[in-house]
Each structure stands twice: as C-alpha cells, then as structure tokens.
Amino acid sequence: MKKKLLLLILFVNVSAIAQNFKTPLDYLMFINKEQVIISKSTWKYTSAVAHSKSARRIDSNRKQLVKTIQNAKTKIGSIKDGYKGDVEYKNQVIQYFDFCEKNLNEEYDKIINMQEVAEQSYDAMEAYLLARDLVNEKLDSESEKAQNSYRAFAAKYNITLSEEESDLSKKIKISNEVFDYHTALYLIFFKVNFTDANLSKAIENKDLAAIEQNKNALIQYADEGLLKIKLIQPYNNDSSLTTTTKKALEYYKNQAEKYVPKTVDFIMFNDKFETAQKTLESKSEKERTKEEVDNYNGLVKQVNKEIDTYNKLSKQNFQDKSATINNWNVSGDTFISRHVPQD
C-alpha cells in the first residue's frame, strides 16, 4: 500500500524583484527562495512515494528533504533581527520548518512502526491511516499559519502578492487528492480481505463456529462496501479503481455464499468419516457388526470422491483469490502512477 505524503507546502510568488536586501521585498524574497528549494525537494519525495517501489529511494528522498529543511532553517535563522527588528514572519517560518522536520523524523518512525502492524487487524489499519491523516492535518495547519504570516508581512509593508500557486504546489495538491481517493477504496477492500483471512484460518482449524461467524461478517462487509462504492465518483473520469474494488467485493461475497457452505459440508463429512473410523478401529473384528463394516466401507468410497472434489474446489478458489488480490494491488499502483504528476 502507498503512503500519503506527509508534507504539503503552498507557495505564492512575489510580483517584483528585489534590488536591495535592506528593503522588505528583498527580505521576503530571501525567505521565499528557501521555501522554493524545499518545494522542489518535497516534490522529489512525493514523486518517489507515488512512482517508486524502492523503499531505499523513498527514504533517501525523505532524508534529503529533511536536510534541505535544516539548511533553510540555518540560513533563515541567521537573520537575527529579521527585517529591521521585525522577526514575526521569520519566526513563524522557522516554527513551521521545525514542525516539518520533527514529523519527517519522529512521526515518520512512529507511523512506519504502525504500518508494520497495520495488516494484523482492521482496527490497526484504521488507526494507522488515522494517525497518518492527523499528521497531515497538523502540517496543513502549520503551513496555513506560515502563509498567513507571509501575507501579513506583505500587507504591513505594502508589498503586492500574486496568490497563484506554483506548479510544484499544484502537483503536490493533486498528489494528496489521489492518495486520499486510493486510501478510501483501500480501506473498503482491506476490510473484506482481512475478514477473509480470518475465515481461512477458521477453515484451516476446522472451527465451525468461527467459520460461520466470519462468513456472515464477510457477506455483511462486502454488502456495506458495495453500497459505499456507489457513492464514490470516478476520479477524473477514471473508474478503474472503483471497478476493481467492486469486483473484489463481489468475489468475496460469492465465496462466502457458495464456497464456504461446500467447505463446511466437507468438514462435517470428514468428521463423520473419522468418527466411524475410530469407532471401528476401537473394536476387535469379532465385535464389529456387518452394518458397521458396510457403513464404513461405503464412507471410504465416498471420502475419496469428496476429497478429490474438495481439492479441486479449493484450488480454484485459491487461484481466484490470488488473482483478485493481485488485480487490486496492480490497479491501485497503476491508479496512483497514472494520476500523480510525473517530474
């Protein structure tokens, strides 16, 4: 699963060129220049998350982004008195960069640790995604504070600003929309996929009560997911991910309704055969009645046929399940690669 970018920086452009660092415009552009450098590093990280399968490359870009932020903090921090003693904007930017650096280091590690256990339960996955989104919300909030301080400084010194977003900030904004869309559908898919994994464990353990419980839950979650998908519009006329998710839910529901009952029948028949076998083996040949022997011999003939049928059924279900999971993963990766802008 792809991780949503943990940094969003929007940039505005100053509508004039500074001639002298002693002017407020020169001061503003000095700080803005460092922000533009960070925006480029931010985009490299975003692009790596969206288009690379190399964890090493992604982490390398994250570390480079941290280094870029640290360098910008050093340069901006060197302006001790800001602009003629006015340090409010400078301090707000440094505070924002401090927050970004902390989240790209400390919070990043926490979220990676949560991601490692997220696959263990739906609640853990939901908690991981919630924690990730909360970090993004905090970063957005801090970014807005820095932007407000930027505008306030410009207004204070009568500097005209263009509120048009840079190309990079537009790319980052689009990327976050794509990741959000992907996450919404991934959660729907993950819920049924995880429930199916529990169902498979129950079948492996021949736990009829757990099988029934997970079968009913699988049907319920599949139905709930299918209703949710109806409310999700295609992203930029691309319905590929909703279509793939819908097909996956239909497969899981069909499996629960048709494959599971046949599996339960086989488990019960196998238990019946094993009980008859134990009963017969516990008696000496003289103690065995003709009815018991005939019944057992009949079960032996039937069990071989049932095993063959069940093995074919299981093999087909395994192939269908593997194809369903693979199709969703490929569709999800393709969706992100298609819609997240390239460098």
Rank of each mutant, 00 (worst) to 15 (best):
K283Q: 05
I69E: 01
L8Q: 14
I336V: 15
R62F: 03
F318E: 14
P24N: 01
G225H: 01
T275D: 11
V12L: 14
K312M: 11
S121R: 04
T263V: 13
I79L: 12
E119N: 14
Q115P: 10
V117L: 09
A248E: 03
N91C: 02
K253G: 07
S141A: 11
L249I: 02
E142C: 01
S15N: 13
A124D: 11
Q255K: 13
K230A: 00
N198I: 06
V293M: 11
D86C: 00
E165D: 11
E212Y: 07
F190N: 05
I307K: 05
E137N: 14
I76S: 01
K22F: 15
A202E: 07
E224L: 10
D123G: 08
K75P: 06
K44S: 09
M268N: 13
N295Q: 13
K53N: 15
L249W: 01
A217G: 04
N216C: 02
T74W: 11
S121Q: 03
T289I: 00
D271G: 05
Q213N: 13
V340N: 03
S175F: 01
S239N: 12
Q213R: 11
L134S: 15
K201D: 10
F194Y: 15
Y27R: 00
I112E: 10
F179E: 02
D343A: 10
L6F: 15
L104E: 00
T74F: 04
K75Y: 12
F97A: 01
V264P: 01
N71Q: 14
N71Y: 13
I69A: 02
G225I: 05
E144P: 03
T160C: 06
N304W: 02
A155N: 15
I69P: 01
I112T: 07
Q147Y: 11
K247S: 12
V49H: 14
